[in-house]
Amino acid sequence: MLTFIEGVVVPSRPSLALFSAVSSLLLCLGPASARAQDSRLPTFDLQRLQLDPAALGSLMVGTGRTLPQGMLRFAVQGHYENLPFHFQTRWEPGNGAGLVENRFTMDVTAAYGVLPWLQVAAEVPYIVKQGGKPHMDVAPPDGSGLATPWVGLRAALLRQDFGFQVAADMSAALPLGREELLARDKYAVHPRLQLGFLAEDWQVGGEAGVLLREKRDLGPLSGDSKDVIGNELRLAGTVTSRAGESTRGEVSVLVGVPLQGGRVGAELLLAIRKHALSFMDLYVMGGPGVGAGADTPTFRFVGGVSFATSKVD
């Protein structure tokens, strides 16, 4: 009931009690809603590694070369990562638990030489399984599904039979991966310049580029303001043998330098490629991650098979 006192409406005691109860309930629900909102896992693409679909340099780093006109290379590979998403303030290999402790992905890549100097490429990953442990009441991503596909274009700027190679490469992510699996950015593009030197028995190569994507602040989740996912300067280098008739080895390094806060991450990957048939290669690649970046795995391993319409290396 309402009581009128000198022209002012005053709630009676039952109404006042109800009003007080509703106010208290709203005050309790407010922080709970905020906590529920804060406990959601931020969405971004956890995968740091982009394979080179042409694989003329290493399996990971380009050397400024493009596939010959009319040549097609198609590959299927299995990809395992250990602790690809965990928080640490300094590099301690294999230490601690993570929101994603193990991830297994199947990956399909393809590249085609459109012109003698122009190549198109694509990469489509599918997360088969991943698992981890909760962190601060946040549940780890679980399940399987499509990860972020990439499409790319590479143009040779300097081509020599032997000697220096230069190419410009641009790749972009398609917004098709599943967010709840940490497999999708709102947007992501990766322009880079590739340099290489090709000799008869060996080659070296390097890449310099910038990965541009939406910034994600993981500080509220980790408790450390340095845990940020965002734009990165990407640097990579490789040394590849070309001397073997059927087998060759390669060493590659990938470094990510954050441009919007965050921590430096790097990986050292060793690979062996076997020319099983004139049109088929078998290969394995693996190595450790170095640095305290939240999305730097402590170890990754890739094994696969590729098919090509002709042999280049």
Rank of each mutant, 00 (worst) to 15 (best):
M1F: 10
L2Q: 14
I5N: 10
V8F: 11
V8P: 02
S12R: 05
R13T: 15
R13S: 14
A17L: 13
A17C: 08
F19C: 11
A21K: 12
V22P: 10
R35W: 15
R35N: 15
R35M: 11
Q37I: 15
L46C: 04
D52I: 02
R65T: 07
T66Q: 04
Q69R: 15
M71E: 13
R73H: 08
R73T: 09
F74H: 12
F85E: 03
M106W: 09
L115S: 11
P116T: 09
V128D: 02
Q130Y: 03
G131R: 05
D142C: 06
G143I: 06
G145P: 00
L146I: 03
T148H: 00
R159F: 01
Q165K: 05
S171N: 04
E180K: 13
K186G: 13
V189R: 05
L193T: 01
F197L: 11
G209T: 10
V210G: 07
L211C: 04
D217K: 07
G219C: 09
D224I: 09
D227R: 06
R234I: 04
E250T: 13
L254K: 03
V255R: 08
P258N: 07
L259G: 08
A266W: 01
S278K: 13
M280H: 09
V284Q: 01
G291K: 07
G291C: 11
G291T: 06
T296S: 09
F301W: 13
V305S: 01
A308S: 13
